[in-house]
Amino acid sequence: MANVQSVNRSLSILEALAQSPKGIGLTELANKVNLAKSSAHRLLATLINKGYVVQNRETDEYLLGLKIIELSSALLENLDIRTVAKKTLEELCSQTNEVVHLCIHENGEVVYIDKFESDQTIRMHSRIGKRTMMHSTGVGKVLLSGMTADEVRSIIKEKGMVAFTPNTITQENVLFDCLEKINKEGYTIDEIENEEGIRCIAAPIYDYSGKIIAAISISGPENRVTKERIQSELIDLILQTADIVSKKMGYLRD
């Protein structure tokens, strides 16, 4: 397929401007993109007209315009988390040979929107589309950790804190301590709190604005997903995976 020269040159200008956030003069810019000043000036005039570039009238230097932000924001807001995360979560499932979940929050509940099965036999209640409570699951607690205290209390008031196992958190202050720990460590463990015999580790997925938009988990029977294995292997794997997916969603860690 033939390249359109003017398009290539315009894109080169935009890329060069992205590398010079404080602005760049015409001569330096033309040199950077290997263009004559007259050619660079003509292309810049078109880009300014379309809002992709602005010129500082005091310094005559050029900068990226707000139209770039508009386009990138539209792209990021329309990213489908399932599509974006699918390959990475499949790899995590293959690496651990345990069940991997992708979940979101909706109306005070956890919703499982994707599930990747391991080769090992395991009976779990989770399935795509299933809803469950937030306080008793690793993914639910991760999602709660991104909310305000008032939002969390509102969910607790509406949904309650039912005990599904002897380990389920049923006290509000204990839950808030757990959420604080998640925000410090970046992950949490479901210590057989939602299903008997099932332990999991979960971590948050962030969008471009730094908001938690989803949670992922590695789940398995307690004899395979041991406390020792979590510490030696699974914490690193889930944090790395969550970071990869978050970056694909546009998140830039400080």
Rank of each mutant, 00 (worst) to 15 (best):
K87E: 08
S73P: 00
L175Y: 03
T188V: 13
E151K: 14
A214D: 08
M249P: 03
I205F: 07
E185N: 05
I155Y: 01
N49L: 08
L239K: 15
S217W: 01
L76T: 06
L17G: 06
S232C: 04
E91I: 05
I218W: 13
R123G: 02
K86R: 15
I230D: 00
K157N: 15
R253M: 05
V162K: 06
E28S: 06
L92N: 00
P166I: 07
N31D: 09
E151D: 11
S209A: 14
I238M: 01
A202V: 09
T226E: 02
F164G: 09
L102Q: 05
F164L: 13
C178P: 01
I212R: 13
V174C: 03
T46F: 07
P166D: 01
L76M: 15
Q95I: 09
A215L: 02
H41W: 09
L239A: 00
I68W: 00
V84S: 10
N183E: 11
E151H: 09
R224N: 06
V53A: 00
G220S: 04
K37A: 00
D114T: 01
V174F: 04
I68E: 05
E70V: 13
D207R: 12
N34W: 01
T188C: 15
A30N: 12
S10D: 13
M1F: 10
N183C: 06
I212D: 08
T121P: 10
N34H: 04
V225I: 14
V110F: 10
G51R: 04
I244H: 09
D60V: 06
D190I: 03
R153D: 11
R57H: 15
F116I: 13
L14T: 07
L66V: 07
I155Q: 06
V225R: 03
T46K: 15
I216Q: 03
I48D: 10
M147H: 00
E98L: 05
A2N: 11
T46W: 14
N56G: 05
T148G: 15
A202Y: 06
H101Q: 00
L11M: 15
P166E: 10
K184F: 03
